[in-house]
């Protein structure tokens, strides 16, 4: 079958190049914003996001705010004893003073014994690796104004942040001293689901719990809204572009129909052109995004996984297909007779 779609693109390079460039720019912007959204999300809640699937529980009276939650010790003990994959944990924002007495903002995290969180002895701390960039090394001694002793840095863990602060894993005893509390805030039930209810506790899926983190949902909602706006805009771009092209080609379509070309083939030409434009534009965007990922400044939270890239690319293709198809409804309506009665194209 003659490749009319490609022949037209070759003959009208500028026209298609313009659309391709716009799709490229919109998709690049979408990928970058999506990367930033994901990066910020990691920066805000990697500690929680990177946990395997499971169910969080907090005090039912905590008004869905984890740092107001105080789980009664007897309830916690019962839960930990009955559920072998349960872990109690607490998270609080705080400060550590480094050896030069400079304050470093951290998220203190403590937990009962669990394979999900590093085991830390009293007087020890394990930090997120980003603290290494701030000059902190293994063996350094750190202090906290509310803590009577000192913390010795035992090691670093990768990509473990909470509320945009590096996580500092400390022992329960030390945590209780710093925050003057006796109860833990949360229980995480590995592999649990919403069907498991416990008296006095409110249950949250991982995503629900993430949404209770102040700023997380607001931040993600705004960025995701921009991403989806851009996706919709790209769909509209396709619809408008092909609409304009189709309006210009109504005469041609009519003649092609008159000589016997099937309407379905005219649609296939349009879809093929949509793919010819979108695929290279997306490929270029993906490559540039990966380059951006490598050259982005250290502090810029950027994370674009292959899964997100593939999903967005697929969404772009589907949106492009829908946009082009909607504009192509005109093709279906074209009567050969109209075209014949028109002048030369």
């Amino acid at each position: 079958m003659m490749n009319l779609a490609w022949k037209e693109i070759k003959k009208s390079k500028v026209r298609f190049l313009i659309l391709g460039s716009i799709v490229f720019l919109v998709s690049l912007l979408t990928f970058i914003i999506s990367g930033l959204a994901n990066g910020l999300s990691q920066d805000n809640a990697a500690l929680i996001k990177d946990l395997p699937n499971g169910q969080f529980y907090m005090d039912a009276d905590a008004d869905e705010t984890y740092n107001l939650s105080r789980i009664d010790n007897s309830t916690m003990e019962k839960l930990l004893n009955n559920e072998k994959d349960a872990t109690a944990l607490s998270i609080q924002m705080g400060f550590l003073n480094d050896e030069s007495d400079k304050q470093q903002s951290v998220a203190f995290v403590t937990s009962t014994d669990s394979k999900l969180f590093p085991h830390v002895k009293s007087g020890e701390v394990i930090l997120d690796r980003s603290m290494e960039d701030k000059g902190i090394k293994v063996g350094d001694t750190l202090t906290n104004n509310q803590f009577s002793g000192e913390f010795i840095v035992k090691g670093f863990v990768d990509q473990t942040k909470f509320s945009h602060a590096p996580v500092a894993f400390i022992n329960i005893k030390n945590y209780k001293e710093i925050y003057r509390v006796n109860e833990m805030q949360l229980v995480f039930l590995l592999g649990g689901d919403s069907s498991q209810e416990f008296a006095g506790l409110q249950s949250f899926s991982k995503q629900d719990f993430l949404n209770t983190i102040p700023s997380y949902s607001a931040e993600q909602m705004s960025l995701n809204m921009i991403v989806w706006f851009l996706v919709v805009i790209s769909g509209l771009l396709f619809a408008i572009f092909f609409y304009m092209m189709n309006v210009q080609k109504i005469g041609l379509y009519g003649i092609l129909k008159a000589i016997g070309l099937k309407t379905s083939r005219l649609f296939r030409i349009m879809w093929a052109q949509m793919i010819f434009i979108t695929v290279p534009a997306l490929a270029l965007s993906i490559v540039l995004c990966q380059v951006f990922n490598r050259i982005a400044p250290e502090g810029m939270p950027f994370s674009l996984t292959m899964e997100t890239t593939a999903t967005l690319s697929l969404v772009f293709l589907i949106i492009g297909f829908i946009g082009a198809t909607l504009s192509g409804i005109q093709i279906k309506k074209v009567e050969p007779l109209q075209a014949i009665q028109q002048g030369e194209m």
């Binding site: 009319l4 003959k11 030369e344």
Partner: peptide, 28 residues
């Protein structure tokens, strides 16, 4: 459509050729 495609030929007031095809390709 099938009859128009295989049994009929059309010549109009204007040639209405496909602008992005060569003369040979129009016939192909």
């Amino acid at each position: 459509r099938q009859i128009r495609a295989s049994e009929f030929g059309f010549v109009f007031q204007f040639a209405h050729l496909v602008p992005f095809l060569t003369v040979e390709e129009q016939l192909m």
